[in-house]
Write a protein that binds this DNA or RNA. Structure first.
Length: 697
DNA sequence: GATCCTCGAGTTCT
DNA sequence: CTCGAGGATC
């Protein structure tokens, strides 16, 4: 049969042939034909479709690249949530996982499907009647972004499942990533064009997938590896995870060649070691391996804890370490004057990013690790993100390297530096005289949780303070558009926005205002207590030093009295200002006792800042009165603040750390150590929907 | 006096 | 998120 006899059949045959060659080339790395032969087939199909436009179908290989760039990505609700996995780092944690699985299944030995854990982006592909209709990112696990147009350009993603009788619905789960060699090629090209280079394959895959113009995505070599399925209708019945992967491979998806089926914890550890040894030689980046109970019936039996399946775990490789050299140890000055030593390092690529500095926390830490300028050090990214100096390579220490000393004078304002006995930190005594502290004070004042002045960030405050326009937060209210627009990189329009934001900030709650003042030991919580107790800023200012001293005495007296009563089992006396002890009172008294601080407050009020007095918290009874909650991870719909607000509205309390007194832990995606702790303490774990139900919403 | 619970403060990089 | 320290509790 030739094309002229039956163009429709010819086009179908060509498409099938091209998809098959794609599969051989992109998924198996084992092409059957030369590139020239492939191109010939492709051009033949293009010619045929040009002659018979009615034959063009969306799933034709000629249609991978759409034309019009999108404005933005749509939202996609996942039919089956895309969950995250629990992590294991140590052999004992893997053994514990295996033990829980064995106990859960009542088996002596369990078979696992083991595979590399790709360091890419989790994706869900939807096929309806064998045709690729939609691809979405994982997002928060429940809702992702529609990146169909970009995914269509990936030739490792079949646009149509091979003939026969395709399933009515198939969701393929997997990872989009960039092979290391393609990443290197991309960066070489970027360099040649004088454009920005990407830091690692994962970031470049993410950046490429989020291109609004699919034509750009098409020029980059992204690939896709399948590792599971979501919703499915009309697929064969699988009994094992490994069978399911075989099925995906038969349907022209790329699956990891390294996947294996192993038995027992010995099998898991052997797989971990094998992949670890091959890690550098693999074509893609991985950050661990994944173990899943192979029997699907077993997976179902084990089920889920909160958001993580009980039948699978990710076994991570240790944080990557790298050598670098300490160029200098600089000192940063914080809002409270705290001096923090920071190691400036020769740029080193570790854990996927280039690290140039790492905090050394305080002098004690510098001494413990004995870090000196010029030292060769081992750098790693602790936990997830924050770079740290793990240790010094003593053998490589240069002769004459001296112990680092905390400077005696502030590097910013030259005031003397002192260390309060029994405290680890050194502080600059310059107070608001110190430029660094002044800047930080203004930044803190404008921050989201304080007076919430939008557009007034670190950069702008730097300029304002350095140009002398602003010395204290009170000066913000004197700024006008003309003055601001005179600054560099500040257009009329954005200057107007900032001024408007400053005006708008005059009305804030008293709690926010007190917090914004930035008194030592007075964070959001303490500020709120003070606001509710005093009711107005004037009431707070009225208190003399003697009044505070009396209050402190009173506090200590009540504390002693209560200790006595407790020993006798008598009822306790209500304390003044619960949650605020002598130390904090002293700090507030010191702050308000200083003339310049009172002056700034007076100016703020004069310039129209009107803190709204706050009614003492009426302990409303709600659905969760008296219960305490801890939030961790990212919730699918609510932000943490929103969740906290709703809990408070029903009488519950939200705290930051998990303890025996915690009633519920609300866990979202990528929940961290708090989740672990909750499990260890046997505390009820809620997902967002459970929380909403509990709150009656 | 000891222990537990919370809050405050500081931090890196994209 | 983690550490350190203040406050409450026993």
């Amino acid at each position: 049969m030739s094309a002229s006899d039956d163009p429709r059949a010819a086009a179908a045959a060509l498409r099938e042939a091209i998809e098959h060659h794609n599969y051989r080339y992109y998924a198996l790395d084992a092409p059957l034909v030369s590139d020239a032969e492939y191109d010939a087939l492709f051009r033949e199909l293009q010619a045929l479709e040009a002659a018979h436009p009615e034959l063009v179908t969306p799933q034709s290989p000629t249609q991978r690249v759409g034309t019009a760039p999108q404005e933005q990505f749509g939202q996609v609700r996942h039919r089956v949530p895309m969950l995250s996995l629990g992590n294991a780092f140590e052999p004992e944690e893997v053994a514990a996982f295996d033990r829980r699985v064995r106990e859960g299944l009542g088996q002596d030995e369990v078979e696992y499907a083991a595979e590399p854990k790709f360091d890419g982006l989790a994706i869900n592909l939807t096929y309806v009647d064998g045709v690729f209709v939609q691809g979405a990112t994982r997002g928060d696990g429940y809702t992702g972004e529609d990146v169909t147009a970009n995914l269509r350009t990936l030739r490792a993603i079949p646009l149509a499942l091979p003939g026969g009788k395709p399933p009515a619905l198939l969701e393929v789960r997997g990872e989009v990533l960039m092979h290391k060699r393609d990443f290197d090629a991309l960066n070489a090209a970027q360099r040649a064009k004088g454009e920005r280079e990407y830091v690692n394959p994962r970031n470049s895959a993410a950046g490429t997938l989020r291109q609004l113009d699919p034509r750009i995505t098409a020029t980059r070599n992204l690939t896709f590896y399948a590792y599971g399925i979501g919703a499915a209708e009309g697929t064969p019945k699988f009994e094992r995870h490994s069978e399911l992967l075989d099925y995906l491979a038969q349907n022209r998806f790329r699956v990891a060649a390294e996947r294996d089926v192993v038995v027992g914890v010995e099998g898991l550890m052997a797989f971990y070691a094998t992949i670890g040894a091959k890690r550098a030689a693999l074509p893609y980046d991985i950050d661990g391996v994944v173990y899943k109970v192979n029997a699907l019936a077993g997976q179902e039996k084990l089920g889920f804890v909160a958001r993580a399946p009980r039948f699978a775990v990710a076994h991570k490789y240790p944080a990557e370490e790298a050598f670098s050299v300490v160029d200098a140890i600089e000192v940063q000055v914080g809002r409270t004057g705290a001096l923090t030593p920071v190691a400036r390092l020769k740029p080193v690529f570790v854990g996927g990013v280039t690290v140039t500095s790492a905090t050394l926390h305080n002098l004690d830490q510098v001494r413990v690790k004995d870090v000196r300028v010029g030292d060769t050090v081992v750098v790693r990214r602790a936990g997830d993100v924050i770079p740290e100096v793990a240790r010094v390579v003593i053998d490589k220490r240069l002769e004459g390297a001296v112990e680092w000393q905390m400077p005696e004078r502030c590097p910013v304002c030259d005031s003397s530096v002192e260390r309060i006995e029994s405290e680890a930190v050194f502080r600059c005594t310059g107070g608001l005289y110190c430029g660094a502290q002044r800047k930080q004070a203004v930044i803190h004042y404008a921050s989201r949780r304080a007076m919430d002045i939008e557009g007034l960030g670190e950069k702008l405050v730097d300029q304002l303070v350095e140009s002398g326009l602003v010395h204290t937060p009170a000066d913000l209210y004197k700024l006008d558009v003309a003055g601001l627009a005179a600054l560099e990189r500040m257009a009329e329009k954005s200057a107007a926005n900032v001024v408007a934001a400053i005006q708008e900030s005059r009305q804030r709650t008293l709690g926010r205002f007190i917090y914004a003042l930035g008194m030592h030991h007075v964070g959001e919580e303490v500020a709120k207590i003070l606001a509710q107790h005093f009711g107005s800023i004037e009431a707070l200012l009225e208190k003399s030093l003697a009044d505070w001293a009396a209050l402190i005495d009173e506090k200590e007296r009540v504390q002693k009295e209560n200790t006595r009563r407790r020993n006798r089992g008598e009822a306790l006396v209500d304390a003044v200002l619960p949650g605020i002890g002598p130390e904090i009172m002293q700090s507030v008294a010191n702050f308000l006792g200083q003339g310049h601080n009172r002056e700034v407050i007076r100016e703020l009020l004069e310039r129209g800042v009107k803190p709204e007095s706050m009614a003492p918290a009426v302990r409303k009874s709600g659905k969760v009165t008296g219960k305490s909650f801890v939030l961790t991870g990212t919730l699918p719909n609510l932000t943490r603040d929103e969740a906290a607000e709703r809990i408070a509205a029903e009488g519950g309390r939200v705290t930051g750390s998990v303890s025996k007194k915690t009633d519920y832990v609300v866990a979202g995606a990528d929940a961290g150590s708090k989740y672990e702790k909750a499990v260890a303490l046997g505390i009820a774990i809620l997902e967002e929907q459970d929380l909403l139900k509990l709150l009656g919403l």
